[in-house]
Design a binder for these strands. Structure first.
Length: 556
RNA sequence: GCGCCCGUAGCUCAGCGGAUUAGAGCACUGGUCUUCGGAACCAGGUGUCGCAAGUUCGAAUCUUGCCGGGCGCACCA
């Protein structure tokens, strides 16, 4: 619909002024019309004419070419061109056709990134929900999306965990693994990490032992060792971590199709970095570094003094590995913004020897998750808020408000709360507010949808889809709001920011509530048309919720 | 010290260059309705849009400086 109007305006401008302006349509205040454009003001500069006069000329031309689609075309203010569509065109506009910005593209979306040998913390649930919503947006825009994550199965944190495990097992005794009950595995690993981390900080001997273990873990991978007692413990613990991730993702309603462990990216990374010592990387104090300061960035170590790859090199390997596996058109990487500058350095380094891969990468940083009261959650400290804690405090909030903490409601509350603020901002999470039955919350949207579905179920009349019934002003107003879904999703796609969807859904629900309060549907002479409105409204809410990966229910 | 991000009503946030009064929700106050799911609707009012300059016909929105907060700055991830 908008395409036709846009084309018509461009055509008229071409005919009248021989101008090739690109027309951008906006959504004006309702009193002015359904769509508007400021082309006349743009043209005024180049043509040296009064923008209002230009607008009048364009309006006259348009009245000829799009007469069948519009009710009224007016000129207002400094030269805005306002167009009021016909009812039929508005109905057509409820058939949403999202911007196909990524049509036919294969996109690898990396997010969540939990580390095996550690526990999932609150930040992971946040980043996973955000990553999921972005993946959904990419799919809506026509992409084939592959969801992957990246986690450290080698490195100091692994050595810290293994140090305590070995202590508890009285050495390399894999048979002791059987003593750990299945349901206690992730807690047990988490606990070992926390203790290992503390030992590393407090105890010099432990620190030395952990550094040694770190090398052992790298060696284990180099040797492809699956048989030694040490290796058996290592691989089993890694597997247990991955199983815990599977459970977590399933509960959140997502599926990560591939877990990239760092161990599988080190070789490719080392190869690439080593190959470019001299032209891209350089030696410094016994390490191999990238001199980011040449580009206004930080210098970073890629291979440390012991000859081991740092995270930087593993990330270089990761992008190569992803490309080997998928031959993607675009790689989207989503992480917390504390890594933003780090990422800048890695991408700049990659740009030096693989410019195409760097250009095909979209990095999306998001903010930090905080609890009400401003408590920040750290992944390094032992006293962290765990991912499950977030689910638990939300369940508790539901109970306190007198509701069953069913998962669909729990997740709707959490996901919506996480997604409703502009991407990039820190989020202050208030579980009470997230489950609130009023205000801009997930449960409110769920309820709004359930209510609309209930009306439709009770309806006796057939829905009037004829376009023969002229709409009343308040009906038309609601319909207009429903058609805005397309703009909301397009904006979300364009910016890759899901909060646009939340903002819109809430506005829509508010508008509907107002309409519904003052207009009867069932039993009213206008029931048939109004049912069509209610159905369209319910469908729109449903589409929006799906985009946010929120599951709705008809019975609440 | 340098760099990146952020600063909008008491609180949580939209708005991120255009239509002379900057919007929601929460909280607070009053009202409507024997309610198609009342988890509703209506009314009531607060803001030097951190501060100051600049660009523009026009700035919460762009630029610069300052103030305040968060994060990052070499062998952790």
């Amino acid at each position: 619909m908008n395409d036709k109007i846009t084309q018509a305006i461009e055509q008229v401008c071409k005919q009248l002024f021989d101008s090739d302006v690109v027309v951008a349509l906006e959504r004006p205040d309702e009193q002015f019309g359904d769509v508007a454009t400021n082309v006349a003001m743009q043209l005024a500069g180049t043509l040296g004419e009064n923008p209002r006069q230009i607008a009048e000329k364009i309006a006259a031309g348009l009245r000829e070419t799009v007469a069948d689609m519009v009710d009224e075309i007016t000129v207002a203010g400094p030269g805005f061109l306002n167009i009021r569509l016909s009812d039929q065109e508005l109905w057509k506009a409820t058939q949403h056709s999202p911007l196909q910005k990524y049509a036919g593209q294969k996109i690898v979306a990396e997010y969540s990134d939990p580390n095996p040998f550690k526990i999932l913390h609150a930040g992971h649930i946040f980043t996973t929900v955000i990553g999921d919503a972005i993946a959904k947006l990419l799919e809506l825009a026509g992409a084939e999306v592959h969801r992957v994550n990246f986690g450290g199965d080698v490195g100091l944190h692994v050595a810290k965990t293994m140090y305590i495990v070995l202590q508890q097992f009285d050495g390399e005794n894999p048979t002791k693994l059987a003593d750990i009950p299945e349901e206690k595995r992730s807690e047990w690993i988490a606990d070992a990490y926390v203790k290992g981390h503390a030992a590393y900080l407090d105890d010099e001997a432990a620190k030395a032992a952990i550094i040694e273990l770190n090398k052992c873990v790298y060696q284990l991978h180099a040797d492809d060792d699956h048989d030694s007692p040490f290796a058996q413990i290592y691989w089993t613990c890694r597997q247990w971590s991955y199983e815990a991730f599977d459970v977590f993702y399933e509960r959140l309603g997502t599926k990560i199709e591939k877990y990239y462990p760092e161990s599988e990216t080190t070789e490719l990374g080392m190869e690439a970095v080593t190959k470019h010592i001299g032209d891209v990387f350089e030696k410094s104090e016994g390490a191999i570094i990238f001199r980011g300061e040449k580009y206004g960035l930080h210098n970073r170590v890629f291979i440390n003094q012991q000859g081991l790859p740092t995270y930087e090199t593993k990330d270089v390997g990761l992008i190569l590995k992803k490309y080997q596996d998928y031959h993607f058109d675009r790689s989207v990487v989503i992480t917390g913004n504390e890594q933003e500058q780090y990422m800048g350095v890695v991408l700049k380094a990659i740009e030096q020897f693989l410019p195409k891969l760097a250009q095909a990468t979209t990095y999306i940083p998001h903010g930090m998750l905080k609890l009400t009261g401003g408590v920040k959650m750290s992944s390094r400290l032992g006293n962290i808020v765990r991912a499950n804690d977030v689910l638990d405090i939300t369940a508790e909030a539901l109970r306190e408000s007198g509701h069953k903490p069913e998962d669909y409601m729990l997740l709707a509350a959490i996901k919506y709360a996480f997604l409703k603020v502009r991407l990039g901002r820190d989020l202050v999470y208030d579980p009470k507010e997230s489950v609130a039955l009023e205000g801009n919350s997930g449960p409110v949207i769920l309820y709004a949808r359930a209510r609309a579905r209930s009306i439709l179920k009770k309806a006796a009349a057939a829905v009037d889809t004829s376009n023969n019934t002229a709409l009343e002003a308040n009906e038309r107003s609601l319909l207009r709001k429903i058609t805005e879904y397309t703009e909301a999703t397009n904006k979300a796609i364009e910016e890759l920011m899901p909060h646009n969807i939340c903002t819109y859904l809430y506005e829509l629900a508010q508008d509907f509530n107002r309409f519904y309060e003052h207009n009867r549907v069932l039993g009213d002479p206008r029931e048939a048309v109004r049912l069509r409105l209610v159905a369209s409204y319910a469908d729109t809410l449903q589409a929006g919720l799906q985009l946010l990966n929120i599951t709705a229910s008809d019975e609440i």
